[in-house]
């Protein structure tokens, strides 16, 4: 029992730490690596609960394929720069998100802990987990009997996903109908301009602003200073207003 508890605590800590890393790290590469940590933690917990097959595919498919795909795309697109977190274009959404996240957790905990350990639901009669039979056999059996239609449909789903992915990422040979979806520049560009203006406005004050030149290509965390974040609220509002009018 001690070993199990130990395993759970360690794996759980890795999971939570990884999850927090995914949310909090500013560099997408770090996020992806944190995600791998969580996935491994979950895989360990799967093993702890006897789901050996799932643990294996968790590592192979999730960590091995999906996260690698993420990293591949990050590298391909060259977005492995840290995100600019100084400005929030949607005012108040961070606070709201934290409130909603905490209440989600709180509600779940109330629901889980206030009830006794007995889970509602009946014990399985048709498809029990038999320790004598390896779980691979059990899952395979269930997949190809009870869940055969769902299984076939997922095959179709995967095909559609592959075709869709190919279609989406194909370089279009024709000229697109709308040459520029963002005629006014991206949100990041606008934020950079706002930041610039705020810096210019603040330059009248004693604080020496340390702004870059106009940089429409993207956000640049280096250009921040303390005064910039003061202007946060008003700037964000102005941007969303402009978005709403168009």
């Amino acid at each position: 029992m001690r070993v199990e508890m130990f395993v759970f605590l360690v794996a759980g800590a890795i999971c939570v730490a990884g999850a927090l890393g995914v949310v909090l790290f500013r560099n997408p590469v770090h996020n992806a690596l944190s995600l791998v940590a969580t996935l491994f933690g979950v895989a360990v917990l799967f093993v702890a609960q006897g789901a050996y097959f799932l643990a294996a595919i968790q590592v192979i498919v999730y960590a091995g394929a999906i996260v690698v795909l993420f990293l591949f795309v990050i590298m391909l697109l060259g977005v492995d720069k840290a995100d600019d977190v100084r400005f929030e274009p949607i005012p108040g959404i961070r606070i709201a998100a934290v409130v909603v996240g905490i209440s989600l957790l709180g509600m779940s905990l109330i629901a889980l802990l206030s009830s006794s350990d007995v889970v509602t639901g009946t014990q399985s009669a048709l498809a029990p987990l038999d320790p004598a039979i390896p779980d691979v056999n059990r899952i395979g059996e269930a997949l190809f009997t009870d869940y055969i239609y769902a299984f076939e449909i997922t095959a179709v789903l995967l095909t559609i996903a592959v075709v869709g992915a190919v279609m989406l990422s194909r370089q279009s040979t024709e000229t697109p109908l709308d040459l520029d979806e963002f005629p006014d520049g991206t949100m990041a560009d606008k934020l950079a301009i706002r930041l610039e203006e705020a810096a210019v406005a603040d330059s009248g004050d004693a604080d020496g602003p340390d702004a870059d030149g106009p940089d429409a290509d993207g956000p640049d965390a280096d250009g921040s200073d303390a005064d910039g974040s003061d202007a946060d609220g008003s700037d964000a509002e102005a941007v969303t207003d402009a978005g709403g009018d168009s």
Partner: peptide, 29 residues
């Protein structure tokens, strides 16, 4: 160690994920 522990852990990860989904702007993240 009961199964409830697992569920609580799952709820925690879920809440962190949901919060992160709303907070982060980078579509990859």
């Amino acid at each position: 160690l009961t199964q409830t522990w697992y569920l609580v852990l799952a709820a925690l990860i879920f809440a962190i994920g949901a919060t992160g989904l709303v907070i982060r702007r980078n579509p990859l993240v």
